[in-house]
């Protein structure tokens, strides 16, 4: 097992994120085959139904698609869809708390911008 799943987030979410990360990092290209639900279940020793839930969310988003009897594949638009979604999350998850903490520490907008450039 290369990755082990942690306890903090629901398992199906971790599986979904793992596939998404692999697509964003370019490890998975469009039309690449991804493991089946059962393969995920066996790999991480989790209930097949739970694994299925993570995979199904990806199918619903259009990131992957099923070919009957063959398996599941990364769709052509996968990266585009994911980047759009992540950008939205990025603001909520990182920018908003960043701003909040900056206010708490008395960092001015200008100072913050300088910091961002440095980082």
């Amino acid at each position: 097992m290369i990755y082990s799943l942690s306890n903090e987030k629901p398992i199906f979410q971790q599986i979904r994120e793992r596939v998404e990360d692999a697509i964003l990092d370019g490890q998975l290209q469009s039309e690449d085959r991804i493991p089946s639900t059962n393969e995920f279940a066996k790999e991480y020793q989790i209930n097949p139904a739970t694994a299925g839930k993570g995979v199904n969310e990806l199918v619903e988003k259009g990131v992957i698609y099923k070919k009957r009897g063959v398996g599941m594949f990364v769709s052509t638009d996968a990266r585009k869809i994911l980047i759009a979604e992540r950008k939205e999350n990025f603001f909520a998850q990182h920018i908003e708390p960043l701003k909040k903490e900056a206010v708490r520490l008395g960092i001015s907008d200008e100072e913050l911008q300088n910091m961002l450039q440095r980082g």
Binding site: N38, A41, K42, P48
Partner: peptide, 13 residues
């Protein structure tokens, strides 16, 4: 025990 868990998933599939 790990073998048992593997078997359980295998059989369930």
């Amino acid at each position: 025990r790990n073998t048992f868990y593997d078997l359980l998933i295998d059989q369930q599939i």
